[in-house]
Design a binder for these strands. Structure first.
Lengths: 343, 343
DNA sequence: GTGAAAGCGCTAACAG
DNA sequence: CTGTTAGCGCTTTCAC
């Protein structure tokens, strides 16, 4: 592979001139430019970005840390992040942590040593101490929290209003006449779980209903978990007539549980999900869900981190996007028939 | 951030000694080692991998080029690749091309300039000329084709026996008595589409049935495409009694189409998918599908590429994994009742 | 406008 | 066993 030296030689200029031409820095005559470009073409020269990075301290690479790319939610998110990064001239290194703090630490260390320009953390747990420590140890490293807050970490954040989303979901069910509304959600340590629970409980209270413990199950944001816990919840004596699932995957699990118990959706049981992922579209009937502007959130997150990396902006901000209710076919008004059955 | 110089100073040795200790190269006394390690700890020193890469020409980074991470199949694949890479001490840069050759070329160029240690291409199209050119331009760059071949590109390959998988799927349906078997699959330019079609047609012929054009539709490997084309195919006069879907996503689309047409699965129509992705497990009834050892394939692919990167092994190999039939609930013997209805 | 030279942080001969 | 030295390929002063 040819280097800048070769280009300089065949263009009959010095390497600094080549550098100037290629980076559009400083003045160069048109004639020199032409000669350099010709040489570049002739030699099929490609800049060695490693060497450039050594001086500029910029690698045009971002780290993206998520729990698990197999989860369709992170598929959507990662795609949006990667697309935006690519548009801005950055690559992204993908890291799956399974919410394992040790794994996360390894990744962080590796990324830092590689001189990446910033790290986007998507939905780490609230107690994530790696992030706290990283912020302290490398205050100049651009960091974005995407989708969740971390206790004691003052960094830029791009969030969705989980409380509001959950409130909308629950209120929708309440307005349909449901009173016994279950909440099946993910990891209790997750920011999303926590915030959504607050929204759920607040909506209930606002409608004069006190949340009861039997109607709340926290486990994992997965289909299996929705299935298992859906079955448990729907087998109760006085079962809920509606379920607010912490995400669409859980919603799908609840569908399967309902089917096995001979309950029809939405006739016998209403279900609301969260995320408006592919899941909500492919199940039958289509899952009513909370739609979050995930695309815009990711774009914003990447724009922000690039901005920080380049401008060293010296203040932290938190941007919160509003979710909306996406009413589809899995919810309907509580019927007298169901009320009779339950009692 | 402290450098090797700082460590050398506080440990009271030369920088080459520090390098030796940290890389375990050459001899160093225990005493020196201790002093260096202490200094490292005291200064919280972290090696600058960019500088190291400049000399070693190794970045411990791999590129993974796929069509679209939103597609659950690539979610599974990417996770397996990333996990294995991580175990071997490599990071992976994710690139989504949407099978767009221009985008792919951009990514390749960028990755090469960044000095990545190898590129894994998952399911590029058969005619992908970027790969052919890359192989010619950079014969020393480790490249693996994962899941599909590319015309005229002699590189290491890790494949699944698509022909055999499709044969198994079709034979399974034939043995259940189905004669009219549809094939709805993905992009006609895709290696998987092509190979699977061959297996499908060969099975038919082996059972004395000649493939007919109306029973074959090639479109995209997506739910929507399965839905749209499933509807088309199942609305025909003399509709198939079974459908072999080119992948699970298409299978899910076919489910939705069948439901809209009032056809029950498997009573009225049998369906077989391909991949054994999450899709096949979450639909009702569970989708009979072809299971591929995707995990092992990805592990092998990464092991291979790392081996090539480190040892410069000078021969190319192709490893083909065998798929198996995963019989679930979406297929059943052709009933007289259905035969009557169709005619 | 252009070239010479220093140096980014590290590795790897080569002496000693 | 350890230190000195010469780069890796590039950017960036600083002269001219």
């Amino acid at each position: 592979m040819s280097t800048i030296k070769d280009v300089a030689k065949t263009a009959n200029v010095s390497i600094s001139t080549v550098s100037r031409v290629l980076n559009n820095s400083g003045y160069t005559s048109q004639d020199t430019k032409d000669r350099v470009y010709h040489a570049v073409e002739k030699l099929n020269y490609q800049k060695n970005l490693v060497a450039a990075a050594m001086i500029s301290k910029q690698t045009a690479t971002l780290g993206l840390i998520i729990p698990d790319i197999k989860n369709v939610f992170y598929g959507d998110l990662t795609r949006a992040v990667e697309d935006t990064a690519h548009k801005l001239g950055f690559n992204v290194i993908l890291c799956n942590t399974d919410n394992d703090l040790n794994k996360e630490r390894e990744y962080i260390e590796f990324l830092v040593q590689k001189g990446i320009d910033g790290i986007i953390f998507s939905t780490p747990e609230v107690e994530d101490k790696n992030i706290r420590e990283l912020v302290k140890a490398k205050p100049d490293l651009p960091i974005i929290l995407l989708g969740s807050e971390v206790d004691g970490a003052k960094v830029d954040q791009v969030l969705v209003d989980n409380f509001q989303g959950a409130y909308l979901a629950t209120e929708h069910l309440l307005q349909l006449g449901h009173q016994q509304i279950g909440y099946i959600s993910g990891q209790p340590e997750s920011y999303s779980t926590i915030e959504r629970q607050k929204g759920y409980e607040t909506a209930l209270k606002d409608y004069g209903i006190s949340p009861s413990e039997e109607n709340i199950i926290l486990d994992e944001f997965k289909v299996d978990s929705g299935y298992k816990n859906g079955k448990k919840m729907l087998s109760q004596e006085n079962r809920p007539t509606a379920i607010f699932a912490g995400n669409d995957a859980i919603g799908v699990g609840v569908y399967n549980a309902a089917r096995e118990l001979g309950l029809r959706i939405p006739e016998d049981i209403s279900v609301v999900g969260f995320d408006h992922s592919l899941f909500s579209e492919i199940v039958y009937p289509k899952l009513t869900t909370i739609k979050t502007p995930i695309q815009e959130m990711c774009e914003k997150a990447v724009q922000l981190i690039v901005e920080i990396a380049e401008d060293k902006k010296n203040f932290k901000e938190t941007i919160t996007f509003e979710p909306t209710l996406m009413e589809q076919q899995s919810t309907q008004a509580l019927s007298k028939e169901v009320i009779r059955k339950i009692q």
